[in-house]
């Protein structure tokens, strides 16, 4: 299946994506860390660090990195554009946010009486506009179109706002045709999205139980190549994705550094063609309904 994919530099045919690192965090900033007195974010340094990783990826045969941090965890659209131009790697950025604990007070305790948290439809409108009108550079401009909608749920059980976010992401994916991605420890979160009418092949899940994900027809995102091979052997080659599990540059919390280049040699060639090329291509292609 082919179509187009929203990259930060514009639409690209999905067949041109090549080897894809499909669920990455290029630059991660814990919300608020940008205001911390002891956190120094030097854009030139960030650029150099991420660009080096992307160049190594490209030299190893990589083609595309998908940034799944969403809109409120350090996403910087202008920096991503410059990185893509400088390295030749396609970059796909995401809209969305979550889980609830990562949201700003604007969504949780708005200036209304009572302070009712945002419902699903408002999240859907916010995320959809990032796919159709452009991603926000806060209070400045919209730039580029989001290529996917992401959220996550609270470990140990989703909150009411997590559920609104799941529905918001599902509706965004349904309306715009971009895929949805979730980070979730309970496959019931995936079922919430599926019940909303989003076909399973439009959803990728970073899950504790990947088998339950692939059995529902959604994509399971894994970080361990051995687990990928197990699922491939079990007949799920067309529903498995591999990602580094690392972060390009992280502020506000320690996180392992990603090596995108390592992905290109992590799997046997035939499996890699399916898992790193064909599956992301199919997932990321915008599917108009």
């Amino acid at each position: 299946m082919t179509g187009t994919v929203n990259t930060v530099l514009g639409p690209v045919p999905s067949a041109d994506l090549g080897v894809v690192a499909v669920h990455e965090r290029l630059v991660s900033v814990v919300p608020g860390a940008q205001f911390a007195y002891d956190v120094r974010i030097d854009r030139a340094e960030v650029f150099e660090a991420v660009a080096a990783q992307l160049r190594a990826f490209r030299a190893a045969g990589g083609g595309t990195v998908v940034d799944s941090t969403g809109m409120f965890h350090g996403r910087d659209v202008r920096l991503l554009e410059a990185l893509s131009r400088a390295t030749g790697v396609h970059l796909v950025a995401s809209t969305g946010m979550g889980p609830e604990a990562m949201l700003g007070g604007y969504f949780l305790t708005p200036q209304t009486n009572p302070p009712t948290p945002w419902p699903a439809d408002r999240f859907a409108d916010l995320f959809t506009a990032e796919v159709t009108e452009g991603m926000v550079v806060p209070r400045v401009e919209r730039r580029g179109l989001a290529g996917l909608a992401v959220t996550a749920t609270t470990r140990g059980g989703r909150t009411a706002t997590d559920e609104s976010l799941l529905l918001g992401v599902a509706r965004t994916a349904l309306t715009t045709g971009v895929p949805a991605s979730l980070r979730s420890d309970d496959v019931d979160d995936l079922d919430v999205v599926l019940k909303e009418g989003l076909p399973a092949h439009r959803v990728a899940v970073v899950a504790d139980d990947p088998l339950a994900v692939v059995e529902r027809g959604a994509y399971a995102v894994l970080t361990d190549p051995a687990r990928v091979l197990e699922l491939v052997d079990a007949g799920h080659a067309e529903r498995v994705l591999l990602t580094t599990g690392g972060v390009g540059v992280s502020f506000g919390e320690d996180a392992p550094t990603a090596s995108y280049a390592d992905l290109t040699t992590a799997l046997p060639r035939d499996v890699a063609t399916q898992v790193l090329v064909a599956n992301p291509r199919d997932l990321l292609a915008i599917e108009k309904r």
Binding site: G105, Y106, R139, R142
Partner: peptide
């Protein structure tokens, strides 16, 4: 004054 996150809402 704006609640944190309001900067995302155009």
């Amino acid at each position: 004054y704006g609640m944190p996150g309001s900067e995302l809402d155009t």
